[in-house]
């Protein structure tokens, strides 16, 4: 597996982590009604979008490099 392929795996794992953090923060907000957790949840959700956009950019930029 090349660095390119491993980077895609890494970005996918980061997306899952940020989605989890967003969900976790939202549940914490529902329990505590503290707005800090809501803001945290929204920031994590926006970083999911950012990482997906970056992943697509990365694949386009390195389309000529092998996955092996």
């Amino acid at each position: 597996m090349s660095l390119k392929a491993f980077h895609i795996v890494f970005v996918a794992a980061s997306v899952i982590l940020m989605a989890f953090l967003s969900g976790w923060s939202f549940l914490a907000y529902q329990e505590t009604h503290s707005t800090e957790y809501l803001v945290w949840s929204l920031c994590a959700a926006s970083s999911v979008v950012g990482l997906v956009i970056y992943g697509r950019f990365f694949l386009r930029k390195l389309r000529n490099i092998s996955f092996l």
């Binding site: 660095l3 890494f10 794992a13 976790w24």
Partner: peptide, 15 residues
Amino acid sequence: LFWHFVDLVWIFLFP
């Protein structure tokens, strides 16, 4: 590749 592995460990460690 090593650097990505180290970062991936953190991605699991953090949650």
